[in-house]
């Protein structure tokens, strides 16, 4: 897709989607009176497999839904959870809206940037973590809040945040959030966002 303001940066070429992924997409399409409703879910599946909404994925989805690539890209570029650059294994999202800002989101951000050596919108060179800014994830009662692959960690101190990303990077056991589930890696969470699986009773039934 053309990036705003210029030619799109070079992006790795991705293999065609796996046959299972296509089969899953067809199941998603069948869920709705109009298959196009599955478009965003299908793009999540592309993200699960390629780490971002790849050009190969856009082409496949367009073909399956009988849309042009322009139509698919038009949707893909509208939503912030659909990414154009490959995500790290974990996406760490720091909320900077007032409740979190008042509670110290600024120092969280600085600590994380220092620890990871990357800024908002960037991914660590080892591909483990993508850091981003978000606009209120509506866990203001847990400010400052950070999401890791969309699981919320509340009341984080800069030290706890650094500890958390170290564990995420090293593959060690990650502390559970105050309520919610332990984050799963990129592929699993995007499959779940697509509407596939995820209602695993244990994960859904975690501590509240």
């Amino acid at each position: 897709m053309s990036a705003p303001g210029g030619p799109s940066p070079r992006r790795p070429a991705f293999a065609p989607l796996a046959e299972e992924t296509r089969a899953a997409m067809r199941r998603l399409m069948a869920r709705y009176p109009n298959p196009r409703s599955a478009l965003m879910s299908m793009l999540y599946l592309v993200q699960a497999e390629h780490g971002c909404v790849s050009e190969a994925g856009i082409e496949e989805v367009a073909g399956m839904l009988d849309l042009t690539k322009a139509e698919v890209a038009s949707v893909a570029t509208f939503y912030t959870m659909l990414k154009r650059e490959p995500l790290g294994r974990y996406l760490v999202s720091v909320c900077t809206q007032p409740p979190c800002a008042l509670a110290g989101a600024g120092s969280l951000r600085r600590a994380l940037e220092e620890e990871l050596g990357v800024g908002f919108g960037q991914t660590t060179p080892d591909g483990a973590i993508t850091l981003e800014e978000v606009e209120c994830v509506c866990v203001c009662d847990g400010a400052p809040a950070v999401q890791v692959n969309y699981e919320s960690y509340e009341h984080l101190t800069p030290e706890a945040a650094v500890e958390l990303v170290r564990k995420l990077r090293s593959g060690g056991a990650v502390p559970p959030p105050v309520h919610g589930s332990v984050p799963v890696p990129r592929e699993a969470i995007h499959r779940e966002l697509a509407g596939l699986g995820g209602h695993d009773p244990d994960r859904g039934g975690g501590e509240s």
Partner: peptide, 21 residues
């Protein structure tokens, strides 16, 4: 001929055709 569409959102919204289409 749906080969042009609005891409992006907000102030960055723009008319575009897909790169190789």
């Amino acid at each position: 001929d749906r080969f042009i569409a609005l891409f992006e959102r907000g102030a960055l919204q723009q008319v575009a055709a897909y790169e190789d289409e």
